[in-house]
């Protein structure tokens, strides 16, 4: 069969859940991914739980105190963090916290977790590294979106009605910034997907990014293809979710 038809056949089977067999060990690719997907989702989920509120808080507060010392410090440090690649952050974190201080293990072995404290120790480094990377982006975009809304006429009107700063931000500004903020979150979380490849490899975390990297090194094409497909799908789901959120937040779009 020509490659094009083979690809279509593979795609058709993928739709039914059959991702083919691994070329390396002959096991179904779906099973291989299934055993790792949960781990990756936990890592991404924990990171999102830490990163999203942190980023929103930083973005909103610096938009509200635009031009203040706080805003400038947050602005400068987010630019710095954005420009440092995650493998450097990860390596530096291992060097400081695992090797010198020995607070946490250098490798994330999920099999040896006993209780909450252990879990925190295992997740600390990978989550911290990923958070570092995505928070900066999200915070900057949130700030930009909110600054835009805060300089609008209706916010000035609210201020002239005697509304408090808190009310202006939560009741007037945020609902109108949900669209751009949701997009910023989706964009950053999809960036997480790229980030996990490096982070899972460095910390030897048993997720699907690590699986994909192993697949590449052993030239296990069905596995690599399926993983790539999964990342694409996750990206599309995130971006669509953001668009839906933006539509729901806007009465003009909501009512058609």
């Amino acid at each position: 069969m020509p490659p094009f038809q083979r690809y279509l056949a593979w795609l058709g089977k993928l739709m039914t859940g059959d991702a083919g067999l691994s070329l390396v060990n002959g096991q179904p690719v779906a099973a291989l991914i299934g055993s790792r997907l949960g781990n990756s989702l936990i890592l991404a989920g924990v990171t999102a739980l830490v990163a999203v509120p942190l980023a929103l808080t930083l973005g909103i507060t610096s938009a509200v105190w635009r031009g203040s010392l706080y805003d400038r410090v947050v602005g400068a440090s987010t630019v710095m963090v954005v420009s440092v690649p995650e493998f450097l952050v990860a390596s530096a974190a291992v060097l400081i916290f695992a090797v010198h201080l020995q607070w946490v293990p250098a490798l994330s072995q999920l099999g040896r977790i006993n209780g909450l404290f252990d879990a925190i120790r295992v997740f600390a480094l990978p989550v911290m590294t990923l958070t570092f990377v995505v928070v900066a982006q999200m915070a900057r975009m949130t700030r930009a979106a909110l600054v835009d809304v805060l300089s609008s006429s209706y916010v000035e009107m609210a201020r002239l009605k005697g509304a408090s700063q808190m009310r202006i931000v939560l009741w007037h500004a945020l609902p109108n910034a949900i669209g751009p903020i949701a997009n910023a979150i989706a964009f950053s979380l999809s960036f997480l997907l790229g980030g996990v490849i490096i982070v899972e490899t460095i910390f030897n975390y048993p997720g699907i990014a690590k699986l994909m990297v192993d697949g590449v090194s052993t030239r296990d094409l069905p596995l690599v293809q399926a993983c790539a497909m999964l990342f694409c799908a996750a990206y599309l789901v995130l971006v669509t979710a953001a668009d839906v959120a933006a539509i729901l937040a806007n009465p003009r779009l909501r009512q058609g």
Binding site: S152, S153, Y154, E156, M157, A158, W171, H172, P175, N176, A249, N250, P251, R252
Partner: peptide, 8 residues
């Protein structure tokens, strides 16, 4: 038009 909040 600009002074009314579009989402309230």
């Amino acid at each position: 038009a600009a002074s009314f909040n579009p989402s309230r």
